[in-house]
Design a protein around this nucleic acid. Structure first.
Lengths: 248, 248
DNA sequence: AAGGTATGGTGGTCGGACCACTAAACTACT
DNA sequence: AGTAGTTTAGTGGTCCGACCACCATACCTT
């Protein structure tokens, strides 16, 4: 390839450096950053550049500046802003379960809506996704990627961008966390069969059937994912009465 | 609850103004913005402030600056970068409807789960929320704030933080956009009655009833919000089968 | 001890000066 | 005329220094 010769603007370098300070360094949530003037001196750049960097970081949710006081590291980094969910997943032990529960709630409705609204093009894409999955499995692959594709297209076919974006996020998070905790997607063959059924139901416009099959499908997956895990549906809820901590 | 009285920094105002220029204005993707110096003059602020604003917008993916050339509107706006939801709401005409559709899908399930898992404390909070709403209405207030509280606590009681965070976001977005477009929450009295019913169902642990009433409740609200609006549930979806349009 | 008041430090804003770079206009050579 | 090189005007990038608004704290007064 060609070296893009990134025109690194000063403020971008600062952004990177500060990010590293936050991530690797000892700077924890709530800590105060050195003053703008100080940073300017340390990095040997103008205060303006530092400010632009801070502005960018602030926009990204890393920092929070308070006039007359100082600049602080946001209590909860980007994750919560960009994606309020990520935090839950990696913090809570049963995060994946909660995530999956969300899927179980949403996706049947998704199938329902898709059966109602899917365009011919979208039906086509679903069709191809299923065929693709078939091929993948014939070659002995897990077909997990294609599996995701199927669900994603479905969300798209439901014609609701809000839902689409949520599902999108959930899928991302699930595959991330699943990589860590739960490798195996149980019985992929079953998955394929179900996808076929769902697709068929959507094609014929049988909304209720589509929703029902999707529900079963998810329960299947869930069972194979979380089998043997205790305490499901019995998770301890954090008491959240107190709003603020006074002292410190 | 309490208004944090956001200290509007100059650059933030500029961000908003430029955003509006982009969204409402005739500025299309790829168009060139006025120069920084020009913007500074137009908005009657310093170039520094303009730059900070542009930096923020750039970070958010709205803009792209090229030294020696100019600042241009990014081809593909925020959508996928920042909060994937916020954009939908303000861009799409039917964004609120899509949002609400999401509520209609989630919240009945929420009521269901709450009926299953709510702790005594949470039941108490729900109780209080309803009473609060009662008082507010007796005083002639709309009780919209409390209404939101009710739904929020419910999400909490469902014991699924993923769902909670999503509902939280949706509520925020809805109230923001509703402030602009749809002021009135129809028949608040009915809302109270429904809340009572839902609470009762949850208390007795009748999951299905709770879900059903919630569903009706949301349809009520939806009707009064979107009455007379055409094309609902018939929204045109952008054809996304063919990737590009050749001719125009 | 309580309350008011200076004070130093912080972020916020400003204006102006250069620098680096790009695109377009211009010039000169072929 | 066409082309290559040069100039030039305008843009974003960076820097500086000044001042303002604000906050926390130390310091007074009472």
């Amino acid at each position: 390839m060609f070296k893009p010769v990134k025109k690194t603007r000063v403020y971008e370098e600062i952004v990177v450096k500060v990010k590293k300070m936050i991530e690797k360094g000892r700077l924890h949530s709530g800590d105060q950053l050195p003053s703008e003037r100080e940073l300017a001196e340390v990095f040997n750049v103008s205060r303006s550049s530092v400010r632009e960097a801070l502005r960018s970081l602030e926009t990204q949710g890393y920092l929070e500046s308070r006039q007359g006081d100082g600049t602080y590291i946001a209590r909860q980094p980007v994750e919560t802003l960009v994606n309020p969910l990520a935090n839950v997943i990696f913090t809570e032990k049963d995060g994946q379960m909660q995530l999956f529960e969300m899927r179980r709630i949403i996706e049947p409705q998704l199938a329902y809506l898709a059966a109602e609204r899917a365009t011919p093009e979208e039906l086509d894409m679903l069709e191809k996704a299923v065929e693709e999955q078939e091929r993948a499995m014939a070659k002995g692959e897990s077909g997990m990627e294609v599996d995701k594709t199927f669900h994603y297209i479905l969300a798209q076919a439901a014609g609701n961008k809000v839902i689409l974006s949520i599902v999108d996020n959930i899928m991302d998070l699930l595959s991330e966390s699943r990589d860590k905790y739960l490798q195996v997607e149980g019985r992929p063959g079953m998955s394929l069969v179900r996808h076929r059924e769902i697709l068929q139901a959507i094609k014929t416009g049988d909304k209720d059937l589509a929703a029902r099959v999707m529900h079963e499908h998810l329960e299947d997956i869930e069972r194979s994912l979380f089998q043997g895990v205790k305490g499901y549906k019995k998770q301890n809820k954090t008491r959240k009465g107190g709003s603020q901590n006074k002292v410190s």
